[in-house]
Write a protein that binds this DNA or RNA. Structure first.
Length: 206
DNA sequence: AACTCGACCAACCGCGATAAT
DNA sequence: GATTATCGCGGTTGGTCGAGT
């Protein structure tokens, strides 16, 4: 059986103190990231490695962009979620200075609701027939046809020109298999303008 | 002023993937 | 090839805070 990642009885849990943060920052500045298993002891922290890694990645990293999401960031998250689903690390990898946790939280607290208010099912990005549509009330035909726009799988998605193959997220982001990479590449290559025009979220946020 | 409720977000947990042995 | 150790991801939880009553 897998051993626990750390000896739980000897580790702190919960919110990080300023001193703990400083210790972690100092240690990583000196020695760099990595080897999270041994880091806590080496840095003099009573935390498990996992906790240190999370704290650094989600909060302490100097390149993090804190604060509200810009409108273009929102749009990008929605588009990427339509393409990738809940692959938060991949999505975050396309948003400089944002973490997967931050993107995930923002999606769950803001964007899901926003889509639902627009009558779009946030799970599959299809127009929800039961909800009122707030967008393009005069264009009922595109709304109807859009309900099936994702049924053909990723290859039916419009060309988002997101260049996902050129910049696979860095060490802090998700791993992506060659098959997935291929899939994404194919979806970028398949140019289906008429299908693209029928995609609810992708249409609304163009 | 006290209470309730919902939103937000940091942190934890479980597990799959991968590397090392 | 099997086993073990570690990393990293995604789902979930729990604490805090502000608005409403």
């Amino acid at each position: 059986m897998r051993k626990p990642c750390c000896d739980k009885q000897d580790t702190n849990k919960g919110a990080w103190s300023k001193q703990e943060d400083q210790k972690l920052i100092d240690y990583i500045r000196k020695h760099g990231e990595g080897c999270w298993r041994t880091l806590p002891q080496a840095a003099g922290l009573l935390r498990c490695g996992k906790s240190c890694r999370l704290r650094w990645i989600n909060y302490l990293r100097p390149d993090l962009k804190r604060g509200n999401f810009a409108e273009d960031e929102e749009d990008l998250i929605i588009k990427l979620h339509a393409l990738l689903g809940n692959r938060w690390s991949l999505i975050a990898g396309r948003l400089p200075g944002r973490t997967d946790n931050e993107v995930k939280n923002y999606w769950n607290s803001h964007l899901r609701r926003k889509l639902m208010n627009m009558g779009i099912d946030p799970n599959n990005h299809r127009l929800n027939q039961n909800l009122p549509r707030l967008q393009n009330p005069q264009d009922s035909s595109s709304a109807t046809s859009s309900a099936s726009c994702l049924e053909d799988g990723p290859s039916a998605l419009p060309d988002l020109n997101l260049d996902l193959t050129m910049s696979i997220p860095s060490s802090t982001s998700a791993k992506i298999s060659p098959e997935e990479k291929q899939k994404i590449t194919e979806s970028n290559l398949s140019k289906e303008p008429e299908v693209a025009a029928a995609s609810p979220t992708l249409l609304l946020f163009q």
